[in-house]
């Protein structure tokens, strides 16, 4: 309740404004801060590390970071899919609704023919 009262009091509003200005003025005379010494040497050390890495990349790093890895992986996937399709095809397995329907008709025709053959005998 007292908080609400403080907000509404013009005297307190004035005090609050003064306080805010006082806080903000703490940044007025700010001096520049010094970085840790030997910044150039540390930057150079990090640069030489990254150069070494660039000069002698491991095969895995090269593979995983490069665009070639994507191309090789895509080629492997396509090859795998082709081998699987060829295998299913050679085994007489087919996919899809139409393929199933064709297979049922084929089986029905075989049954029909065998029945007739039996009757003939």
């Amino acid at each position: 309740m007292s908080l609400k009262h403080d907000h509404n009091s013009s005297r307190d509003r004035g005090d609050a404004n003064q306080y805010v200005e006082k806080l903000l003025s703490s940044l007025d005379e700010i001096k520049s801060a010094h970085p840790q010494p030997y910044l150039h040497a540390r930057v150079k050390a990090r640069l030489s590390q990254s150069h070494d890495y660039e000069q002698e990349p491991t095969f895995l790093a090269w593979f995983w970071n490069g665009k070639w890895s994507l191309a090789v992986m895509a080629a492997i996937l396509v090859l795998n899919a082709s081998v699987l399709l060829y295998y299913f095809d050679s085994q007489g397995l087919t996919f899809g609704k139409n393929a199933t329907a064709e297979k049922i008709i084929e089986e029905y025709q075989l049954d029909y023919q065998s029945t007739y053959t039996y009757l003939d005998e």
Partner: peptide, 10 residues
């Protein structure tokens, strides 16, 4: 900062 003033004062 005004809110901070009111909270610390309360």
């Amino acid at each position: 900062l005004k809110n901070y003033y009111y909270v610390t004062k309360a």
